[in-house]
């Protein structure tokens, strides 16, 4: 690989400074603060704190409910990512093939990404509510079968679907852009060689999509870990009996609602490490299969 070297320049540094300052003030400083709090017991109204070393981490990690929260977060992240990306890919393929009405459709499908997570949760309340939602029709046939307040798997399914619905739009834009950047000549050549749409998809488009695919995988997984809060809060509130108590929701519940700043800070650090580890694994093992053109 070719490497470029630049000489240090004060002008470049000065031009970079405002951006770096913003990054520092809004990212590194709060992270450092959280890291500090994670090793103390912080009084919410100020007034000092006590250094407790690794106690906060020990307490969190020895809690069996915390591990079930980690488990459900991983399930949620994987399930929403798979669901959202496969839906996005299928929809992008349709649009790319310019099926009837694709122009209206292309605009409409971008909208969900602009909807705030709590609003998504609320909208899906109308779908999943056992008493008044669309799913309540199931209950008229089999009374009591659909009940988010009773069955953990149903609650998890509900937040996965709501979460995936929100993510589809983002992945869709990238998939579509990537599909459209595939040179037409390639597709036409393949078509002339007798490859039908499905074959062209398998042998031509998907391999050329791998960089986009990889990028979206990393972004989607990270997003599902950190951006699921609004959906959980409005749709299930972490219930029934903690079944949808995702890590990021637990951080909110303990830190903001319960004023346990230190415990929440420790959980944030753990979440950050987990997301970093997952991203590392993806770069280490999955990126190998990606072909950049």
């Amino acid at each position: 690989m070719r490497r470029a070297y630049f000489k240090f320049s004060w002008i470049a540094a000065a031009l970079l400074a405002p951006q770096l300052l913003i990054v520092f003030v809004f990212f590194y400083w709060p992270s450092a603060q959280a890291l500090y709090w994670a090793f103390t017991l912080e009084q919410p109204w100020g007034g000092g704190n006590t250094w407790v070393g690794f106690d906060n981490f020990r307490q969190v990690l020895s809690d069996p409910y915390y591990w079930s929260s980690v488990r459900v977060s991983v399930i949620y992240a994987l399930a929403t990512t798979v669901l959202a990306m496969s839906m996005a890919l299928i929809l992008a393929m349709f649009v790319d093939r310019q099926l009837a009405g694709y122009k209206a459709y292309r605009v409409a499908i971008i909208w969900p990404y602009a909807v705030a997570a709590p609003a998504v949760g609320l909208a899906f309340q109308f779908v999943f509510n056992p008493g008044a939602g669309l799913f309540s029709y199931i209950n008229t046939i089999a009374p009591g079968w659909w009940d988010l307040s009773k069955y953990p798997w149903q609650a998890v399914t509900a937040i996965v679907i709501a979460g995936a619905w929100k993510q589809v739009a983002y992945s869709f834009i990238f998939f579509l852009a990537a599909l459209q950047s595939i040179p037409r000549s390639l597709t036409e050549a393949a078509a002339m060689d007798g490859a039908r749409p499905l074959r062209r998809m398998m042998d031509l488009q998907l391999p050329l999509l791998t960089p986009t695919f990889f990028f979206l995988l990393v972004i989607n997984i990270t997003d599902s870990f950190t951006d699921s809060f609004g959906i959980v809060d409005t749709l299930t509130g972490g219930g029934p009996f903690r079944a949808t108590d995702l890590m990021v929701y637990k951080i909110y519940a303990d830190g903001f609602r319960g004023f346990d700043y230190s415990g929440a800070a420790a959980q944030s650090i753990i979440l950050m490490l987990l997301v970093m580890a997952l991203t590392f694994v993806q770069f280490r093992y999955i990126e190998r299969r990606v072909h950049y053109t």
Binding site: S149, G238, P240, F241, R242, A253, R257, G258, D260
Partner: peptide, 21 residues
Amino acid sequence: GGMIQIRAEWLAEVEAAFAGQ
């Protein structure tokens, strides 16, 4: 102290009992 979490623990556990867990 921690009344909000205590209430939440109570509710989650009681719900688990009502669900027969």
